[in-house]
Amino acid sequence: MSGDARSSAFEIELRLLLEAIFLRFHYDFRSYSMASLRRRVTAALSALGCETVSALQEKILHQPETFTALLQYLTVQVSDMFRDPAFFLAFRQHVVPELATYPSPRVWIAGASSGEEVYTVAIILAEEGLLDRALLYATDINPDAIAKAKAGVYAEERIPTFAANHRAAGGKQPFERYYTSAYGHAAFDRKLRDRVVFADHSLATDSVFAEVQAVTCRNVLIYFDRTLQERAVGLFRDALSRRGFLGLGAMESLQLTKQSSAFEPFLPELKWYRRS
């Protein structure tokens, strides 16, 4: 069999798998980036002991509990707290002062995964004296990730990176005061999540649930195809108040979306945009 034929067999199986997942579990990965899905599903095959994607499809349909394991491969990405410190320094210096003009500013962290970015935003708002009257929505499609985000417990070995990033992002307090260490883990202060609503929400299938003054959605759109990117950015457009802020990942841009007219550059080199 030639390489090309083998590739297309894989792609056919992959599309069928995504269709099966949608029909059976109502998760819609059909508009995800195929290049990334291909790698993730290939990794899942060996981990779940399947020779082919068709075998994996059979397994999740007939042993639905396997789907939870597959979902981890399809969705989870680990991010560091204050990843891209310059982005969060800009948030602190230029976005937070604007948020402070609202009586109860709301921030939506879309694709919050295991919560690193939620604690990042909460720490900045706390240091700027805004957390007590703010409300954060942290959403993701993966219930296991949301559970981790709620727990706020991370491997202690990750703390030096988090702390260095926090400093580089203009951190005002010693980072140690935000967590307690035990048995190789760091548990973050529960007060940081008092003002956080964690929720199951899909940018692919759900709609807008609240009006917010800022959205951060970083390194999530890169996993979507252009159709789904349009949908997600459309949700942000509809959720944001006039003059609200949108922050994206370093490699993401509104340049190729049709919604670019709904936004204006705020600090475009740092991926901050503003609802026009």
């Binding site: 195929m34 290049a35 790698r39 996993y223 370093a250």
Partner: peptide
Amino acid sequence: APDYHLLVERDRTFAVSID
């Protein structure tokens, strides 16, 4: 770019990931 994987899509566009 640093810190992102770079991939190629079927429609001959770039894709990136933080896997």
